[in-house]
Each structure stands twice: as structure tokens, then as C-alpha cells.
Amino acid sequence: MKLRALISLVAALGLATPLAAQKKVERRLALGMEGALRVHNMVGSVIIHGWNKDTVLVRAVLADGDEFHMGGTYTGAKMFVESSNDRNPKATRLEIWVPARVRLWVKTATANIDVTGVSGGLDLYVVSGTIDVRGNPRELNAEAIDGDIHVSGSSPWIRVKSATGAITFRGASADAALSTVSGSIKVEGGLFERAKIETVTGNITFAGQLDRSGAFDFDTHAGTVDIAVPDKTNASFSVVTIAGRIDNRVSRTRALAGRFGRGEELTTETGAGGAKVNVRTFKGPVTIRHSP
């Protein structure tokens, strides 16, 4: 009988351990609709929703021993997780509801960042997690080292950088700059006024509308460049490769042999000309075509 009771006790403790190793926290803080919020979480995930209340609500799931801290005023607040072991921090899940027009700053190490419905400025930094943004932030600055970055929505000003991670941007922007080393960059969507897209070996795919007075730069060392523009685009293309090929499908102009003895060069226009599109690659092939 005693043995059975002991087994039951051990089993109960065993079952309880995972639950006891996590701690749930819920906190609220008043923050103005256009206030500023800083969030710092090393590992796990940060999920942020914009809402139309001047309140920050946080639901956190912390590892045992970790502490959640939050404080600030109506104009600015900060929250972070204090790990019980800085050398080996445990995963924390932060789900946060913030005033929609807030100025948001989030920094993580390996935590994924997911932001939805925030129209204020966003500054998002991860080392190796992924960043997902859905909505129309006033400004967006997102940086990762080896994580992917996905943006779905439009922003007048967008800066996105990764090294090995891929970047996808579905939306429109007046001023966009996207950059990777080996990660691919894929842009799809609406109207762009200025864009600078660069990689070292990552492939670049651009399918968007070009503002007639806009300027667009595509640079890569060895990645492919595929630019698709609508039929009635007014643009002037200048394409130079040192050792790559150019496939022009938007006009009858043929690429010429490069002036430096290798590679190819193309200068051509679509419509009445206008948007200045500059493409430079060392050995990556370039294709310019009409959108399907």
C-alpha cells in the first residue's frame, strides 16, 4: 500500500514538473496611443498586436526562476525578462497588446518577433529568429543576422537587412531599402517610388509598379536579378554586368557586349521612359520582363 502511494506521489510530481517549470504572468500598463514601448526578450517569442486602447496588456509564459519586469509612464514604457541564468536563458513567450500607433522597439536574440496591426514606427532586431510584420507601419526598420524577415503591408519608409536569412516584402513603399548577403529577396506588390535592393549572392526577385519619377537600384555580386514590371511602365533601364548575361524581354533593344570586354550592358526604355532603374551585377544573370 505504501509502495503504491509512493508510486502515485512520484507520478504526480513527474506530471507536475513541466507545469511548475513555467509561470504565467498578466500585466497592464497605461500607455498613450502614440507613446513609445521597448521590449527585450532573449529567447522564445514576442507576439505583438496593435489595438485601439491606450493600454499595454502583456501575457507572458516564463521559465521557472525568470522574472518579468515592466514599467514606465504614459508616454514611454519598457519591459524585459530577467533570466535566472544569463548564460543559458530559457524560452519566454510574450504576447503583448499595444496602442496601435505606438513607437515600438523590440530586440531579441533567438526569439521570433511577430507584429500585427501596428501603424506607428517599428524597430525590430533579432540575431537568429524570424521577423514577421503584418500591417502598415509608419516606418519599419527590421534587422536579423541569420533569420528570415517577412513583411506584408505597406510602409512609406522601410529598411530591412539580413545576412543569410531571406526577405519577402509584399506591399508598397515610397522608400524601401532591402539588403542581404546570401539570403534571397523577393518583393511583390504595389507602387514603389524609391527602392534599393542589394545582395552578395542572394537572388533578387522584384515584381512591382515603378513610380515614373522614381529611382531603383538593384545590386548583386552573384545572385540572379529578375525584374517584372507592368506592361505600361514608363521606365529607363540601365543594366551592367561584368560577367553575367542580360535577358531583356521588355523592349527590342539587345544587350551589347560590355565595354570592358566581358559581360553585357543594356540601356533601354519602356513607355515614355521615366523611372530610373539601375541594375549592376558582377556575374549574376539579369532578366527584365513584363508582369504576367
Binding site: S128, I145, D146, T164, T201, F282
Partner: peptide, 26 residues
Amino acid sequence: LAPETIAQLKASLRTIDEAILEARNA
């Protein structure tokens, strides 16, 4: 930094260095 991140970072720096070397030689 996590060892995986260091490896990724080194790979990226190597990629850039190779591009620099290739362009430098050209």
C-alpha cells in the same frame, strides 16, 4: 552568440570576402 549563429556569420563574411576578392582581381 550561439555556435550556429557564429557559423552563419562566418559563412556570410566568407561570402563577402570571396566577392571582394573576385572583384579585386577583376
